[in-house]
Computed example of a mutant assay.
Amino acid sequence: MRVVIAEDSALLREGLVQLITMVGHEVVAAVADAPSLERAVAEHEPDVAVTDVRMPPDHSDDGLRAALRLTRSHPGTGILVLSQYVVRGAAAELLESADSGVGYLLKDRVGDVDELIDALERVASRGTVIDPEVVRRLLGRQRNRSVLDRLSPREREVLDLMAQGRSNAAIAQALVLSEAAVAKNISGIFTKLDLPVASQDNRRVLAVLAYLGQ
C-alpha cells in the first residue's frame, strides 16, 4: 500500500510515517499543507491519502477541502481524514461523494496502531471507515426514527455494524449469518431507506448517514 500523509505537526507527521512503514507499507510523501497534499497525490497516485482538517495555508478546513477535491480529480485514491476537528458541511459532502474508499477518524479515538492500519487498509480496498460517534459529531444530527422504523430488527443489527465500518464478511461473522443473508438484508435496507442504485452515490455511506442523522 502506498500512502501520502498531510499533517502540519512535524512530530505527528513523522510518527505516522514510522508507524505505517513499520508494518511494511510505503509512505511516498509526507507534507505539511493542503496544496502540497494535492501535488503529492497528483505526482505519486497513492492508494490512500491521510489528511488532517486544519492546516496551512489558511489553518481552516484546508485539508478537508483538498480531500474533497481529490475525490473528484483522483477518484482511485482513498481518503482517510485523521483529525481532532469537525467541519460539518465539507465532511458530509466528502462522505457522500467519494467513489473510492473513505474514512473519518478523530485522533483521540484511535485506540492503537492496529486500528489505524486496519482503517488504512480498508480505505485502500475501497471500503468505508466511519465511527458512529464521529459522524454524529460531524453532522450534529439526531436519528431519523420514522425512517428507521421501517427496518426489521435484523436489518437494524446489520446497519449498526455497517456504521462501524464492517465489511459484509465481518458482519456475517458477527451475526452468525451467511454472506448471502447479509447481502439480502443490505438490499432490504437500501429499499426501505429509498436508496435506489445510482452511480454517483455510495449507497452504503448514505445508509449509514440515514442511520446516524436525518
Rank of each mutant, 00 (worst) to 15 (best):
D131W: 04
I130D: 00
V102I: 15
G127L: 09
V129Q: 04
E121D: 15
G101E: 09
D114Q: 11
R109S: 01
E121Y: 00
A119M: 04
I130Q: 09
R137G: 01
R122H: 01
R126F: 12
G111A: 12
V110L: 13
S97R: 11
V113I: 14
V135D: 05
L106T: 06
A91Q: 10
L95Y: 05
S125V: 00
E96K: 12
G111L: 10
L116K: 08
S100T: 14
E121T: 12
R88I: 03
R122T: 11
V123G: 01
V123S: 04
S125H: 07
G111T: 15
L116G: 01
E121H: 05
V113E: 14
I117D: 08
R109V: 03
V134D: 00
R136W: 08
R88Y: 01
R88V: 01
D99I: 03
G89R: 15
V87C: 08
R137Y: 06
R88Q: 12
E115W: 01
A92F: 05
D99T: 14
L120C: 02
V110K: 06
V123H: 04
L94N: 12
A98D: 07
A98S: 15
D118Q: 10
E115S: 13
V110C: 07
L94G: 05
L95E: 06
V123A: 07
D108L: 10
R126D: 15
T128H: 04
D131K: 02
E115C: 01
A98M: 11
L120M: 03
E96P: 00
Y104I: 06
D108C: 05
I117H: 04
E93Y: 00
I130M: 14
S97E: 13
L106P: 00
A92C: 03
A98W: 01
R109N: 10
E133W: 12
G89F: 06
G111S: 12
A90Y: 02
S125E: 14
D118R: 15
D99H: 14
A119H: 00
G127P: 03
A119F: 02
A124C: 07
G89M: 07
A90H: 12
L105G: 06
S97V: 03
A98N: 03
G103Q: 09
V134I: 08
L116I: 04
A98F: 02
V87I: 08
S100A: 14
V110Y: 10
D112A: 13
V113S: 11
L120E: 08
P132H: 07
L106Y: 04
D99G: 06
G127V: 14
R122N: 02
A92E: 12
R109K: 10
P132K: 13
V87S: 13
E93R: 13
S97K: 13
V102R: 08
A124Q: 08
G103K: 04
L94C: 05
V129N: 02
R109E: 06
R122I: 07
A90P: 12
Y104F: 15
A98L: 02
D112H: 10
I117N: 03
V87G: 10
S100W: 03
G101W: 10
T128S: 09
D118W: 08
R137A: 05
Y104D: 10
I130F: 02
V123W: 09
V102Y: 05
L106K: 02
A90E: 15
A90F: 04
S97C: 06
G89I: 04
I117F: 01
Y104A: 06
L120W: 02
R126A: 15
D131N: 13
S125Y: 01
R109A: 07
R122A: 06
Y104T: 03
